[in-house]
Design a protein around this nucleic acid. Structure first.
Lengths: 296, 296
DNA sequence: TGTAAAATTGTCATATAGTGGAATTTTTTC
DNA sequence: GAAAAAATTCCACTATATGACAATTTTACA
């Protein structure tokens, strides 16, 4: 069968005008490298690491090229799910869910179960006819149980949680988001994962400000609001993350409005809207205006 | 020797509460997976790919964990170089250069030569006593020759070029930057590489506006300026890339100023400064003000 | 606490990753 | 355009990645 990574390697090597001898030197034999490049043998992870290092290329970029400039499977799964969700494409969502359920049955690895659950959450939001709320409850608990148990949250856990957060109880969200922040700390310097953390924090704050306690007179989660804002401020240190900073401004405004500080809050949100207009991000500006009208 | 990736894999697998059997199922035998995880065998790239896929994790994240949450060697090289450059740490720069030269001699792979060159460029900017300009000229040409020959520019080529661009002749920069834009097109959806492209385009425009033709009465590169701005506008489509959008605004302002449209230009740059202040990016705002004073 | 079931490890067989050097092809050089 | 040099492939051989199944350890459950 053989995935023929070697052929991609040969292409890259030729590009960089490096000979078999030069690349193999100190790593493996010339003849073997040739064999691998011709697709007549697989290669050990250890050797491949050294080879890519010499080529000044990392694994993901290499695999991206190998798969004809397509993102990896993990990425594809999350993109496919969120695209189908945004397009309200119920059919596609169902199909994606079935794929994951099938794998779950086949290997009984819970991960696939969680994946199916994520899509079920999307489905339940998009599809009005979908009323099997009872079924979900238990399953959602399974998911949050898992998230509590994991010691280190990576890209997968963060993205999974981000997608299902809306259906959880507020106490649960507060605890889990705090956990997410703490247990992903070691990824603070890994851009991709760190973006996922930021995303979780923003969604948590939005959740607290919005849907949860729309019907309460007073705002219940003042302390938590400050807590998560402070996490964000700690993470979003780079001055150049303007979008995140603007988002922060917006949420502070929304908070003011929610806690009967309407004037001050409106000023902040309007300022954010103006900033977006100044930078020609018109669609975002319009969305934010809608949001403002909604919360006033 | 064996890099013992297996031990990291075991950790990740335990985290996700997956058994050997479940993970191995359909990929390899249980006993082999166990052996690999105990560090008693290396593994084939093909198998590893399938295993990570099942764990919903990509290679880079896995290797990041494996190397105790340190970025990969490629990343480390560029960070080390640029940090030493920003800190004007001549000693460290020299050390880094020698490392690369040593590898160059050892394997006679030109890549290491280019790496050394990049650092030499940094060195020549930082170290006033460094006057061996003659030596560089030829070597810099070697580098640009290489860049012209490569068919696909990846993260390495883009970052390398970005660092050495300042020392090239304007005609060369224009040609190479255009090449960079065209030959990296297939990475348009790969965030990391795409950021590098954006960075190249910005630096090109800054170069055209600034250092090159400071002493000419009229601005020579109007057409090229528009060309590269249009590339940026094509790339920077996502409305949420505020920093890039702000940067664009700034450069348009600088262009106006350079082409005797002082008032209009100053307004644009001042607007950019104000935006930064609004978002508490004070240091960036101050830098931009300095820049403005300099070009007026 | 003992026992059954599940999960992991050990043992040995074999397929294949990887080596050294000769043979062939490609590139360079005059 | 032929000879020399460099790069690659072929071939016979060795080391090790991987599989089948038995033995052992760990976990679950009464």
């Amino acid at each position: 069968m053989l995935e023929e990574y070697g052929k991609t390697l040969r292409m890259v090597r030729k590009q960089k005008e490096i000979t078999l001898k030069q690349l193999a030197d100190g790593i493996c034999s010339i003849s073997f490298l040739s064999k691998f490049e011709r697709g007549e043998s697989d290669i050990t992870l250890g050797l491949m690491t050294k080879i890519l290092e010499k080529l000044m290329m990392n694994f993901d970029e290499f695999l991206y090229i190998h798969h004809d400039f397509q993102p990896d499977k993990l990425q594809q799964f999350f993109s496919a799910a969120s695209t189908a969700y945004l397009n309200r494409d119920v059919k596609h969502l169902k199909q994606l869910k079935n794929e994951q359920l099938k794998k779950w049955k086949q290997y009984s690895v819970e991960t696939y179960h969680y994946n199916a659950l994520l899509i079920e959450v999307y489905q339940s939001i998009v599809d009005k006819d979908y009323i099997e709320v009872g079924v979900q409850e238990n399953e959602i608990l399974l998911l949050s149980d898992y998230l509590f148990r994991v010691e280190i949250w990576g890209y997968y856990e963060l993205t999974l949680y981000n997608g299902t957060l809306l259906l959880l109880q507020p106490e649960m969200v507060i605890l889990l988001s705090r956990t997410a922040y703490e247990k992903s700390a070691r990824f603070r310097d890994y851009r991709k994962v760190n973006n996922a953390i930021t995303s979780v924090l923003f969604n948590t704050i939005i959740y607290l400000l919005g849907p949860v306690n729309r019907f309460h007179e007073e705002f219940l989660y003042q302390r938590e609001f400050s807590e998560f804002i402070s996490y964000l401020e700690e993470i979003t240190i780079p001055e150049s993350n303007l979008m995140e900073r603007l988002h922060l401004l917006q949420l502070k405004g929304a908070y003011d409005i929610r806690t009967d500080n309407k004037e001050e809050g409106t000023v902040k949100v309007r300022q954010a809207i103006q900033l977006l207009h100044d930078l020609d991000s018109t669609r975002l500006a319009i969305n934010l205006e809608k949001y403002l009208l909604q919360i006033i």
